[in-house]
C-alpha cells in the first residue's frame, strides 16, 4: 500500500484556505478516500445519523506526480483529524513561502508512511508532509487511522455510491450569507426546521413550537430539474398556505431537519462555493445541498471539484 504525491499551489490554496476550514466545521474526524483519479473527504458515511458530506477532488485539482497503489484496486481510505491536517498543512505552507525559492524548491510532498512513534513499540500509520526549506527540511506527521480493510472500504464505496442520487428538483439559494445569518438567529427559537421546496422555485423554511411559528420564504429561485409554473390563484396567499397547496398538488416536497444540521451545512460557505442548491431526495429521504464551483474567471462549472451534503430527515413522530 503506497501513496505519495506533490500538492500543487492551487491544491494548497484550495485545501488550506477554503476546504479544510469548512470541513473542520462539519466534523473533527473524516475519512480521506484516495483512488487512482480522486481524493475524497467523507463525513459520516459509515455511521448513519449525522450530516453526510462528500467533498471530491479530481487528482489534478490538488496534486501532481500522484502515485497510488494498493491490493484493493489502488484504493486507500483512512480516518484523519481534519484540524490536525489543517494545522500541518498551514505550517508547511508557511515554511514553503518563507524559505522556498524557484519552481521546484518549495514543493510540498505528501505521503503515507508507517513509523515507530516515541514511547511505542507498535509502528503507526501517518500522513506525512515534507517541506524542503533553504537549508532544512521540515517533516510533519499527521496521525491517521489504520487504513480501512477491504470490507470496510467496500462499505464506504457503497455508501458513497448511494449518496450520489440527485433530488428531482433543485432550487438555487441566492445569498448564502444572508441565509446563514438568518438560520443562526433562528437557532434560538427552536430545534426542528420544516423545509419545503416547490417546483415553482420556492424555498420555504419554518420553525414551529407551542409559542411561536417563524418562517422564511424565498421565491423566484432558479430551478434545476423538474419545474412548473406557479398557479396564478395562489399568488396572494400566505407562504404557509402556498406551500401546503403545492404539496397537495404534488408540486412540492417537505421534510423536517434539525436546525443545527441546517446551520452546519451552511458553514460550507467557508469553502467559497459560487452557488448552492437545495433539493429533497425522492420519498423525502434526505435534504441535499449541492455546492458548485466555477472555473476561476468564468461562469463555467469546475467539474474537478464537487461538494455536497445530505441532511438526515427527522421523524416527527420519534421526538
Amino acid at each position: 500500500m503506497k501513496f505519495k504525491a506533490f500538492l500543487t499551489e492551487n491544491g494548497v490554496n484550495l485545501l488550506e484556505k477554503r476546504f479544510l476550514p469548512a470541513l473542520d466545521r462539519m466534523g473533527k474526524i473524516c475519512h480521506l478516500y484516495l483512488t487512482r483519479d480522486h481524493a475524497i473527504f467523507l463525513h459520516n458515511l459509515l455511521n448513519g445519523d449525522g450530516i453526510q458530506s462528500v467533498a471530491q477532488f479530481r487528482r489534478e485539482a490538488l496534486f501532481d506526480d500522484y502515485r497510488i497503489s494498493s491490493q484493493n484496486e489502488d484504493r486507500i481510505a483512512f480516518a484523519v483529524d481534519v484540524s490536525l491536517l489543517h494545522r500541518a498543512l498551514r505550517s508547511s505552507v508557511s515554511i514553503c513561502t518563507e524559505f522556498g525559492s524557484g519552481p521546484t524548491a518549495n514543493r510540498l510532498h505528501i505521503k503515507l508512511v508507517k513509523k515507530l512513534p516515541a514511547n511505542s513499540s507498535q509502528p503507526m500509520p501517518f500522513l506525512t508532509f515534507e517541506t524542503k526549506g533553504f537549508k532544512s527540511a521540515v517533516i510533519q506527521d499527521v496521525p491517521i487511522s489504520k487504513p480501512l480493510s477491504r470490507a470496510h472500504l467496500l462499505e464506504l464505496q457503497t455508501a458513497l455510491d448511494a449518496a450520489q442520487d440527485l433530488p428531482p428538483t433543485l432550487v438555487q439559494v441566492p445569498d448564502l450569507n444572508q441565509l446563514q445569518s438568518f438560520v443562526d438567529r433562528m437557532k434560538h427559537i427552536g430545534e426542528l426546521l420544516n423545509v419545503s421546496i416547490t417546483k415553482y422555485g420556492e424555498l420555504h423554511m419554518q420553525i414551529s413550537t407551542t409559542f411561536i411559528t417563524l418562517g422564511a420564504e424565498f421565491r423566484q429561485l432558479l430551478v434545476i430539474g423538474e419545474q412548473a409554473d406557479a398557479p396564478v390563484e395562489d399568488r396572494n396567499l400566505s407562504a404557509q398556505a402556498r406551500s401546503s397547496r403545492a404539496i397537495l398538488r404534488g408540486d412540492a416536497q417537505s421534510v423536517q431537519v434539525s436546525v443545527k444540521h441546517f446551520a452546519k451545512s451552511l458553514c460550507y460557505h467557508l469553502a467559497k462555493p459560487d452557488c448552492a442548491f437545495y433539493g429533497i431526495a425522492p420519498q423525502g429521504a434526505c435534504l441535499t445541498v449541492i455546492f458548485q464551483f466555477f472555473i476561476p474567471g468564468s461562469r463555467q462549472m469546475d467539474k474537478s471539484i464537487s461538494l455536497h451534503c445530505r441532511l438526515p430527515v427527522l421523524d416527527p413522530g420519534s421526538s
Binding site: P174, Q178, I212, T213, L214, G215, A216, E217, F218, R219
Partner: peptide, 11 residues
C-alpha cells in the same frame, strides 16, 4: 422584499 420574506406568529 417580494422574493424573500420572513414571517412570525407569537402566541
Amino acid at each position: 422584499s417580494l422574493d424573500a420574506s420572513i414571517y412570525a406568529e407569537i402566541r
